[in-house]
Design a protein around this nucleic acid. Structure first.
Lengths: 343, 343
DNA sequence: TTGAAAGCGCTAACAT
DNA sequence: ATGTTAGCGCTTTCAA
């Protein structure tokens, strides 16, 4: 039957419960002989200490709550893997849930985690409502944001990819190849990520003496359909563009599919670079040049941070470098390859 | 400050703790007026009932433990998403961990979950050691296997993809295209999956009057390098093969990469079909024909099962259908396209 | 309808 | 070195 408790072990070993507790937690001092007797008793009974009892007493669960938009997304999945690895090393367990892009659901999940008395929460947040996040710190759960930071919230530690630097590198690379009419396709997010990428895109263009062309800066909604529509619309309305920087793999895919549909050759007719590495970039044809965000490392760092968070108050975000992975989806601009080229 | 307890709420509302408990859990009867007072008090204090206290008392945590080989793997990631969705709907939380292919780690994770007193465990198991799984049922945690079943273990409910049927469909499709020398590249797993695929492959070949050629049946180790080596070796040693069925996306990728490296055109020189849908199958060039396993649905079913498991004893596994997604990586066999063709 | 009180399994003082 | 005991926050009889 189930339910072997510390009492049973104590009885079986002929000692008090405190002694059992001492042996199993390695705390205090116990004679070698009793230690062995206790361990033997525990083993034969198949005793598994209840984390419930312990946590109730110690006020620490060793649990960390992880909230992502979508566990099936490759970036999130890598991030999760990073968190898991570090958590395991630190003897913590991870509660996972996905909030989509729904602030209400996010708040609900946070609440559930709070009731589970997790020691900390790592979130790729949807929403900047102070109500959702502010209470937590006060409740003793440390929070760490990852990947993006909601605009309204301050004082929460964060782990970010250096999106700006990534976009800068991408644009530098493209201008180096002779491109001047470069489009930027990104999310409409009021969240971190997209906003910073857009800003960096503009700034870098200007550094190269190119004045940003508003018609080439498009923001797409989240759905796959919307992404495709935006990409296709961009290609059709602006046949003069020679390169495109897509923020996130969804939009990258959309761009590739739309280009293919419109019979634009990559990179002969249009160069494509995606901010977000994906496992299949290599298998794509042509292999995709990307700006990789260090998803896994971000997960590891976030987990470290959340476990040490009580120690470090807010501070500036940890920013991890991105990496330009040059493959074959970008090429030099070719003067007249593409039909319908006007301006 | 942290730590608002039921006592605080009771005091603030001027009632006993039992009443607060009744109000918040909706159990028993309370007058409308006291109910409101309690709710008001709880709200102003920002009370979050401790799941610890409750679980300790009720002996149910509402937690379900999920063990996958790798959270970053697309199949696992989809599966996880399915579990999360159902769990949320059932008011459960999910503890996630990844065991790689390491039986010892798997056992350790199971143990940790047991200490957390999860109500059930869903596992894509590595290992059939009775010790790891048998004790759990006795301990009151229901176990459900997903995707594969270790050979040594019986009496555990499972959710599987109909791998056999999937392979059968794939082979039917290829023979229909005129292929006779079809290779099968799969894992060396002693676990479910691979074994069944191999058996189905053989059987289907025979149904078509083709005697299985052992040289075309290769089992690869898990690592990406090993996969690539196996694929390349296969292409080089057997230039007469015209089609290949790969089990799992890792081996599918390896096959594609190897084919590309050896300048084999897909599908002109070799047709490729992968058992395992991947998000990028569409983006591959040519778009990949696959046998999709319903990862997400499997996660949903597994979660339902684990929550109702006490009710259903063992029984036969739930087998979900696979789906052949015809895209463009398979073509009719072309008599003389490939150099080095001998027999 | 409501309150008092007994635990759930554990740890940590405090005694011995 | 070891045992006794008082809770941790909650649910649930049992009385009132």
């Amino acid at each position: 039957m189930a339910g072997v408790t510390i009492k049973d072990v104590a009885a079986a070993a002929g000692v008090g419960v405190a002694t059992v507790s001492r042996v199993l937690s390695g705390t205090g001092s116990v004679s070698a002989t009793t230690r062995e007797r206790v361990q033997a008793a525990a083993a034969t009974l198949g005793y598994r200490p209840s984390a419930l009892g312990r946590s109730l007493k110690t006020q620490r669960t060793g649990g960390i709550g992880l909230i992502v938009p979508d566990a099936a997304d490759p970036f999130c999945a890598d991030f999760i893997a990073g968190v898991l690895e570090t958590a395991r090393a630190e003897n913590c367990h991870v509660l996972l849930d996905a909030a989509g892009e729904d602030p209400a659901l996010e708040a609900e999940i946070v609440d559930r985690f709070a009731q589970q008395r997790v020691d900390g929460i790592i979130a790729m947040p949807v929403h900047g409502d102070a109500d959702t996040w502010a209470g937590l710190a006060r409740l003793g759960v440390s929070v760490v944001f990852a990947g993006r930071v909601p605009s309204g919230v301050t004082g929460v530690p964060a782990v970010l990819a250096d999106e700006a630097e990534g976009v800068r590198t991408a644009v530098d690379y493209l201008t180096g190849l002779g491109h001047r009419r470069i489009a930027h396709l990104d999310g409409d997010a009021t969240l971190g990520g997209a906003r910073e990428r857009r800003a960096a895109f503009r700034a870098t263009l200007e550094e190269h003496g190119i004045v940003p062309d508003e018609g080439l800066l498009v923001r797409a909604r989240g759905s796959a359909d919307a992404a495709y529509a935006s990409a296709a619309g961009l290609f059709q309305s602006r046949p003069d563009l020679t390169a495109i920087v897509a923020g996130g793999h969804r939009l990258g895919e959309a761009a590739i599919l739309a280009a293919r549909e419109l019979n634009l050759r990559i990179p002969a007719d249009v160069s494509i670079i995606v901010v977000d590495d994906v496992p299949w970039a290599e298998l794509c044809d042509p292999p995709l040049t990307v700006v990789a965000r260090p998803a896994r490392a971000m997960g590891e760092r976030a987990c470290e941070l959340v476990l040490r968070a009580p120690a470090r108050r807010a501070g500036r975000p940890v920013v991890l470098p991105t990496e330009l992975m040059v493959r074959a989806s970008c090429g030099p601009v070719t003067p007249s390859a593409r039909p319908g080229r006007s301006r």
